[in-house]
Amino acid sequence: MKKNVSFDVIIKEKVTHLEESSKGEEMEETELWEMVRSKRKPAWRVSGRTAFWIGGVAASLTLLLIIHFASDTDHERVTFSRNMRAVVPSDIHKEDDPHRVDDLILSRCAEINEICQTPEFKELRKEFDLIEDELKDLQLMISHYGADEFIIQSKIKIENHRSEIAFRMMQMLMS
């Protein structure tokens, strides 16, 4: 019984001691957390009102930048692609020799001068000479812009027109 009493006393003392020691540990832990919290504090702190204004200005600036880039239509860019291109004849750069036709007309005019002096023939002759100027302009365009379908079409028009004029002149000289 004695032993039992002493055992109870011992237990009671131990429990009491444990509670006291636990209280002490709890205090230390609270202090520790306080210390951790204090270390986690930011270097600067803003009030809620200031944060509202800063956020508002930042949002406005972002919006303005988006509007600026969306509304500005002045753009310039270089892109590359592959495409098919019409192959032009290699002799497109060469000028035809108008002197061959010219020589024929001149020699014929030497034989029948009266036709070559008519207003109609003179007008055709003037047109024939103008075509030579057009061919020179065309050669300049080829050197600057290269030969493509527009140039070929233009040359065909000139050549066909010159043929028509030469044909009409020859018709007159034959009649």
Binding site: V78, F80, S81, R82, M84, V87, V88
Partner: peptide
Amino acid sequence: VTGQDEVHVAT
């Protein structure tokens, strides 16, 4: 025009 060939296009 005598045909077509493939070219690079810079735009």
